[in-house]
Design a protein around this nucleic acid. Structure first.
Lengths: 335, 335
DNA sequence: TTTATTTACGAAACCGGTTTCGTGCCCCGT
DNA sequence: ACGGGGCACGAAACCGGTTTCGTAAATAAA
């Protein structure tokens, strides 16, 4: 079997407690003894058992990242950001995908009560208003930080962008480019981030005296095929939109697919703008105008916040909200 | 504090062992007692301490996924596949990014000796031939499954595609489309997957009587800016290539960027084909011809293999190699 | 009726670090 | 010479499930 602290102790004629303290560089062990212990541990290739210490210290060094999917540029960049901080701090990252399924999200969070992770970074999926599982986890004093998609009813730390402003800017941009029938592709009516973007969209329309047409606001789903059909439907309408705001990346690219299949030219027939952090947005046909969030930095910020509330119960970090700027990058899809 | 098994035992006038066995549905506990224990545990919201049981059972239910990056369509889809199996089986996924850095990879694998994970899924980064850390982990009987990028010198389970064939097919395709000066954008000369693709490339050239020009084979890096400069350089040569094989996704899209910036038209001036699983390859400008691997399925297969060797020491699964088919999808970048 | 066997459960060791609480011993001040 | 104080280390409890082994009672087999 692997060499334990007791093995070292008996071999060196020391008590286990002495060895333990020596390895943790305790002040109450002489330099000489420490040297002996370290040398022998090295020689024997001693590797501390993670679970023994976790059991006693009630810390695992693991954090969870819970998000809808990973095949989305925002999330994959955010993971990069999170992972970079985690590696600096010596934490380990566990990843959980909800696929926008609230039930799955709930069962994932429920599991965290076992102490598997020290803290949680989460981008919630649009549930039917059932945030009880989130509140429950919060009540158990498990540090949580929301990034991008927060749960509004909870006073935890959050790293966000101004979604209302994003929706407003995107819509205003389309209006400036001459669009009058602008469609908003929503994802789930219960997702705060989406409804904020939608409110920005509606406000922008109102500001320019364009009536809000509920038929132009459509709820897509997490299923690609289904969303494709939904988007196609609005384009087959005799009164099809001349502009589209994709509230998440996939809806913008799906719009491209639909337009291609229907022989609608972007931007001549339809102008498209999407919330996306896709680095190759510039390489699309046509290049896609985006509202781009600082995904990597948001990941870093969220992780940093989490670790600071993990390392010392940093009250300040517990419920801080950081709002980071998103930018509109104009490209050919709206020219 | 949280309710423990001992608390339940004393409250119910039972021994801790009885409660433990009851909760694990042991046959040596009567149905009636089990019912009492379950009911009380439920009522008290008992949540077993993960680390206590891990310590004793030497299993954590965690697996590690080690890969170069996550912002690559192949890897993000593979993660989806892995995660889907993991969730079915009740395992938890830890994610580690190496950023193609062998030192980082080594320190990551070294950590696994602590027992943090039960098994490892890995897509190696191109190191300077230093696979000793991989062998070391293998020697410690930690089940490993390689996916996509394997370590050749080791007899572990692998899920691959035929990279030689991929390189061969890609190159032959370009030749058929009229290319004569075909560049191969490599990543790291020490990465088996890349050298196989390169050998396929060279063999295809030879088969068609085209001399292999070493100047057309260039090693890019994991740094985007650096690779951009390298690619740009070959296009600024008076004898620039008329075809490009991107051995990984990012190199194909970088080629697009370079061509755009140099006003080179794809496919008229240069034809481009890339190894990629990008779902929006069809939406690029122009749409990108790809060698596409079944990324999701490969992730699933690798995870399945790992779990089968985890659950019972399935010797068969320990060193099985699964080769999955990749397909060439012709699009506009080579027309 | 006596001897196996099974059933249902308890006591205690165990996993491997961590931490508390001593306890000798040496040095120092008075 | 004596009390106080730090230093270096040891014994043992502890974290919270798991597992082995033992045993009394009940049932079955001889």
């Amino acid at each position: 079997m692997s060499v334990t602290i007791r093995k070292i102790a008996t071999d060196l004629n020391l008590a286990v407690s002495t060895v333990s303290k020596a390895l943790r560089d305790s002040h109450e062990i002489s330099a000489e003894t420490k040297k002996r212990v370290f040398a022998y541990a090295e020689q024997m290739d001693y590797i501390p058992n993670l679970y023994a210490s976790s059991l006693k210290r009630k810390k695992t060094g693991n954090i969870a990242v819970v998000l809808p999917e990973v095949a989305d540029s925002f999330f994959s960049l955010a993971i990069n950001g999170i992972e970079s901080v985690a590696q600096e701090k010596g934490y380990h990252v566990m990843i959980y995908l909800t696929h926008e399924n609230p039930d799955k999200e709930e069962s994932i969070l429920r599991d965290f009560r076992s102490g598997r992770v020290d803290g949680v970074l989460i981008s919630v999926s649009g549930g039917a208003g059932a945030d009880s599982h989130i509140h429950d986890l919060c009540a158990r004093r498990i540090p949580m930080v929301f990034f991008d998609r927060a749960c509004e009813s909870i006073g935890a730390a959050k790293v966000l962008t101004d979604d209302f402003e994003g929706g407003y800017k995107a819509t205003t941009h389309l209006i400036e480019k001459g669009c009058r029938r602008i469609s908003f592709l929503a994802l789930s009516e219960t997702l705060a981030i989406i409804s904020h973007r939608q409110h920005g969209y509606e406000e922008a329309l109102r500001h320019d005296g364009i009536p809000v047409d509920k038929n132009l606001i459509v709820n897509c789903t997490n299923d690609e095929r289904e969303s494709y059909a939904i988007i196609k439907k609005i384009f087959l309408d005799e009164n099809r939109p001349d502009g589209v705001v994709g509230s998440v990346e996939k809806l913008a690219t799906l719009t491209y697919s639909v337009c291609r299949d229907l022989n609608l030219h972007v931007p001549r027939d339809v102008k498209v703008i999407g919330f996306s952090s896709l680095s190759i947005a510039a390489l699309l046909n046509p290049s896609l105008t985006t509202i781009t969030q600082p995904a990597f930095e948001m990941g870093r910020a969220a992780a940093t916040l989490l670790f600071s509330s993990l390392e010392r119960n940093n009250q300040d970090a517990q419920c801080r909200t950081i709002v980071m700027p998103s930018v509109l990058i104009e490209r050919d899809s709206t020219r």
